[in-house]
Amino acid sequence: MAGDALSDLLRTVRLTGATFFDIEGHEPWAVCSPAPSSILPKILPGADHLISYHVVTAGRCFARIVGQEAIALEAGEVVVFTRSDPHIMSSNPALRADPPTADVLDIATAGRMPFYINCAGDGATSARLVCGYLACDAQPFNPLLEALPPVIKAGDVKGDGGWLGQFINLAVTEVAEKRAGSETVLTKLSELMFVDVLRRYVESLPPQHTGWLAGLRDPHLAKALALIHDRPAHNWTVEGLAKDSALSRTVLAERFTRLVGMPPMHYLAKWRMQIASELLSAGNSNMASIAAEIGYESEAAFSRAFKKMIGVPPSAWRLGIRTGSGSDEA
Rank of each mutant, 00 (worst) to 15 (best):
H209C: 12
S281M: 07
A242M: 09
H209S: 15
S303Q: 07
E254W: 00
R231D: 15
W212I: 11
G240I: 03
S289D: 15
L259H: 04
T250H: 06
L280K: 00
M262K: 01
L221P: 14
T250M: 09
D244W: 01
L241P: 14
Q274C: 12
Y267L: 04
M265A: 09
R272C: 04
L227F: 08
Q274M: 15
D244G: 03
L241A: 14
L205M: 15
P263I: 05
A269H: 06
G261Q: 06
I228H: 08
A282C: 10
P207H: 10
S277H: 12
F306L: 00
S281L: 12
M287K: 01
M309P: 00
E203G: 11
H229P: 08
S315H: 05
G211H: 02
S298R: 02
Y267T: 05
W271H: 11
G240L: 05
S281V: 06
H234F: 12
F302D: 04
A233V: 03
W236L: 03
L225H: 02
A276Q: 07
L227Y: 05
F306T: 00
K243F: 05
R249F: 03
G215D: 10
L227T: 08
V202W: 00
L221C: 10
N286Y: 05
K223M: 11
D244S: 10
H234L: 15
N235L: 14
V202A: 12
I310T: 10
G283V: 02
A316Y: 03
Y296S: 04
S277V: 06
P314Q: 04
I228M: 14
V251Y: 00
P232C: 08
L252I: 06
T237V: 07
P219M: 03
G283C: 04
P232L: 07
R231C: 14
Q208K: 09
V260A: 04
A224T: 06
L319D: 15
W212G: 12
G211P: 07
L279R: 10
S289F: 06
H266W: 03
T257Y: 00
